[in-house]
Design a binder for these strands. Structure first.
Lengths: 144, 144
DNA sequence: CCTAGTTCCTCTAGCGACTAGAGGAGCAAG
DNA sequence: CTTGCTCCTCTAGTCGCTAGAGGAACTAGG
């Protein structure tokens, strides 16, 4: 398991961009790898796995702090996974809320676009609804 | 239509926070209002309407730049509303994409949480799926 | 008229999660 | 040995705010 990958390789294999990898190192999400004589980062298979983990978690919308915790958990396989479970559950709730609010929003936008008679701005449904909150179904409808 | 509202009044009436109102002024989304002798901003009814418009549009997830365009359109009621329509349609597409990707994500998270046997990290579905992208249905599933 | 409390002012800096660009050094192939 | 790619560090910018410092100006009560 020697360090055999350059940062570019790591980027290609993990799908995380080069500057982002360096950024992850800077914020302590990824350990600083050994360097070659010329001062270049050289990654091993473990790093690539870690990067893939991070990328997947980011894709799933987990925040960096949550990922930090998940990574710590992964490093101690004997611990109870209750914490990981809690993080995932928590995130599921967030996602569900976000879906609900976006769905309401979609209705609103669809009504807006549909009602538009494609005439002049003066009689434009889109502008009208935006101007008059009272006209819309989106009262206190949470945040996207 | 005199300037009769303080920035605090404007904030209360529009639901936009005081520093945010000043920020909108700074970025040119809201015109700089006249000041009182003591140097305080004094807003009129027009400003309040504009603020409400902005707030509503932000609530609906429109970006500041889109709102800038929409406001310009609102100021010229004789123009065709095609542009406003396009912006709204565009945003609708974005929202629909976001919903689709979040829905896929929800499935993924639900499977993760369900599969978790609440034992040790070593056999935790949550960690496992995160570590191994191949195990999950979320291939190239766009961004949340 | 004085004071206490609130609201306002400007200014700078910070958030999250990157992204972009400058300016320079290392390295592999022809 | 030169060309062109990758890599290095560093600073600054993105978006849409938010937080805090330090100070001035109103408002109500005594």
């Amino acid at each position: 398991m020697k360090g055999i990958y350059t940062i570019g390789d790591a980027a290609r294999q993990s799908g995380v961009k080069v500057p982002t990898i360096r950024y992850y190192e800077e914020i302590g999400l990824l350990p600083a790898p050994p360097r070659t004589e010329g001062g270049r980062r050289s990654y091993g298979a473990t790093d690539l796995r870690r990067l893939a983990f991070i990328r997947h978690a980011r894709e799933l919308g987990f925040e960096i702090d949550a990922i930090r915790t998940l990574l710590q958990l992964q490093d101690e396989p004997d611990q109870s996974c209750a914490a990981a479970d809690a993080i995932a559950r928590d995130h599921l709730v967030t996602v569900e809320r976000r879906i609900a609010s976006l769905t309401a929003l979609r209705e609103e936008l669809a009504r807006m676009v549909e009602g538009c008679s494609h005439g002049h701005v003066a009689s434009c449904r889109v502008i009208e609804i935006l101007a008059d909150h009272g006209e819309c179904a989106h009262h206190e409808g949470a945040r996207a």
